[in-house]
Design a protein around this nucleic acid. Structure first.
Length: 614
DNA sequence: GCTAGCTGATGCCCG
DNA sequence: AACGGGCATCAGCTAGCG
């Protein structure tokens, strides 16, 4: 099925302060609307700065006319819900133009909605219109990052840069006063920037939306809605549809209870060499099928059948993908099998989902119990063979194999210990591993790349200079060059003291979880401590909403004060008159060296293990 | 009056 | 409105010190 897709990007003018351009209630006029569709058609509607009132009115009418003429099934935009749509609606009200974009001429509707994406809560106005779907690439990027944790930020230009979609990063990032200048000067640069924005949005959607379009054909939710529904909610809908179809009654929601999760442990900290990794292939789905961990309330046995079918379907798509020559079809099959992989992994989550009619907490507890037992058995066996187990998390083990061992031998030996249907893959080997704490480690690949895992080593809560420093220091440690660490520290200290870096190296970016009102209430009732990001949001006077991010740094103060008092918005940083607190940042550097620089002991047959019992 | 050390809340990450 | 497990940071509190 081929959809007609139209993306657009409305760009707002900037006032003298340069503030507020992402605020939908923003009062400045539109400077341009860029449009692009999936057939290569493009159009730029530019508002004439010499005749703003009439020209903006005409631009809005043109946009509506184009939507009716192109008649898209899908309308896309980056930050469509939180900026483009509310902004256009408010401008249209001012200009007294109609926003009747529906297929039958209906108007835009909106209501406040809330979205939970992992630990983030995002408030946004949910828009709908008859006969078309709205797709916001900002939300697609948020969902993508839950699994990957690799995006630097969520603005269009951040995401486009990550996926290497920019023609020119400089043009892509052009905004604020500079953009305004380019607009007033009627420059070629301005047109390029306007088109760049909408092209990036289209490209982003081509990458991230296919999985959802597939899901719209599986689950009883339409394309627009399936994007914002959680995995367990989608599975619940499959149950309800089948039970209704068979005219069977639906059980009450079960009583929620807590249950134990996966097994995590660490047996060695420091540096290990020649490290292997093995894991159980799709642990929880395999356990559920092999040990009959299904919802007791599921009289029609939908769970078992769905799980079996989804798994078979995925393997089929995977095999088909490998045999496919046409890149477009291969791409589609890749998206398909990946969608099924995520779906497969969500079935266990459904067992522990308090809002699922067929959730079963006892079954969920059995699944993790069996998982923990399997892992312990594997650890025991590997240790018995003379392996040094380093770290374990849920379904995988990092270990140093015994001297002179054949991988096939090890794999066959381990397979004999495990029940049928539980398959262990020895998937990777690494030159070195830096094991720090549970769920926190670094790996040195055979190609010389460094992979870092864990919040203590790569959290967004660390400033960029700390992340970069940590990565370089850990690489040195893994390469057994700890002697080079003091020089590295020295280099970074010089860069801080000489104020050589751009502010993005020093700033921290926090996501606001609560509304400002809720924060104020909690502070008043001493239910929480003050935090820099919220304090800055309060002072700014802008109406920040949950889910929005604030970037700030710590400025120099005459005496020591809590960080939230010394915090300053990164956007207010003046490169000509720098005021960052260099001592504060150098101290952070010292803490890193103190914390990690000592962990340089090597493991192996000749050196002792630094810590066995943690 | 000061500080080390603990506590609870929050934010982010792993599988 | 998928799950549980884990670590770091911050501010605020308090015991214990001079």
């Amino acid at each position: 099925m081929q959809l007609e897709v139209l993306a657009f990007d409305a760009v707002a003018g900037v006032d003298d302060s340069g503030a507020g351009i992402t605020d939908p209630g923003y009062n400045n006029h539109i400077i341009t609307i860029a449009l692009s569709d999936n057939t290569g058609w493009e159009e730029l509607i530019i508002v004439d700065p010499a005749n703003v009132v009439e020209s903006e009115h005409a631009a809005l009418k043109r946009l509506t006319a184009l939507i009716k003429e192109r008649d898209p099934d899908v309308i896309e935009g980056h930050n469509l819900f939180r900026f483009n749509l509310p902004y256009l609606v408010s401008r249209a009200q001012k200009a007294k133009t109609k926003v009747d974009w529906g297929r039958s001429g209906g108007f835009l509707r909106s209501r406040p909605s809330r979205l939970q994406i992992a630990e983030k809560t995002i408030d946004y106005p949910k828009f709908a219109i008859d006969g078309r779907h709205f797709v916001d690439t900002f939300l697609l990027a948020q969902f993508y990052d839950v699994g990957m944790r690799s995006l630097a930020g969520f603005e269009r230009t951040d995401v486009a840069r990550h996926f290497d979609l920019c023609d020119s990063e400089q043009i892509s990032a052009l905004r604020g006063k500079e953009l305004q200048r380019a607009y007033l000067g009627d420059s070629e640069e301005f047109r390029r920037r306007a088109l760049c924005g909408v092209r990036e949005t289209r490209a982003l959607s081509e990458l991230l939306s296919p999985s959802y379009f597939i899901q719209a054909q599986i689950f009883p939710y339409n394309y627009q809605d399936v994007i914002v529904r959680g995995n367990a909610t989608r599975i619940n809908a499959l149950f309800l549809r089948e039970y209704f179809r068979q005219r069977h009654s639906i059980p009450d929601l079960p009583m929620a209870r807590a249950f134990e999760g996966g097994y995590t442990d660490i047996f060695f900290t420091g540096v290990a060499h020649k490290v292997w990794h093995c894991d159980i292939a799709s642990l929880y789905p395999s356990v559920m099928l092999q040990f009959d961990c299904f919802p007791a309330s599921d009289q029609l046995q939908i769970f078992r059948h769905l799980l079996t079918d989804v798994r078979a379907f995925r393997l089929e798509a995977k095999a088909e993908m490998r045999g496919e020559k046409d890149p477009a079809k291969q791409h589609h099959l890749q998206a398909l099998q990946n969608t099924f992989k995520i779906l497969l992994n969500s079935f266990y989550g459904y067992l522990g989902f308090a809002q699922g009619h067929f959730a079963d907490f006892d079954a969920a507890a059995r699944v993790t119990q069996i998982g923990r037992d399997l892992l312990r058995k594997m650890i025991g066996w590997l240790t018995g063979q003379g392996a040094q187990v380093i770290e374990v998390d849920t379904d995988g083990i990092y270990f140093v194999p015994p001297f002179e061992i054949n991988i096939d031998e090890l794999q066959l030996g381990l397979a004999k210990e495990l029940p049928p249907g539980i398959e262990v893959e020895f998937d990777e080997q690494f030159d070195a591993m830096f094991s720090y704490k549970a769920k926190n480690y670094a790996l040195l690949t055979k190609g010389g790349d460094v992979i870092i895992k864990g919040g203590a080593l790569k959290s967004r809560g660390l400033e960029k200079f700390q992340r970069v420093f940590l990565e370089e220091m850990i690489k040195l440690i893994m390469e057994e060059k700890p002697a080079a660490i003091p020089q590295l520290r020295e280099d970074f200290e010089q860069k801080i003291r000489n104020r050589e870096w751009n502010i993005d190296m020093l700033m921290k970016t926090d996501t606001l979880q609560d509304s400002l009102d809720k924060y104020r209430a909690k502070i008043a009732g001493s239910a929480r401590n003050r935090a820099a990001a919220y304090e800055l949001a309060l002072v700014s006077g802008r109406n920040y909403r949950p889910g929005e991010q604030i970037s700030y740094y710590v400025k120099a103060t005459p005496k020591k004060v809590p960080a939230y008092e010394a915090a300053k918005l990164a956007s207010e940083f003046d490169p000509q008159n720098r005021d960052e607190n260099v001592d504060y940042y150098v101290a952070k550097l010292d803490e890193l060296v103190k914390k990690f620089g000592g962990l340089v002991t090597a493991t192996g047959s000749t050196t002792k293990q630094e810590s066995l019992a943690l």
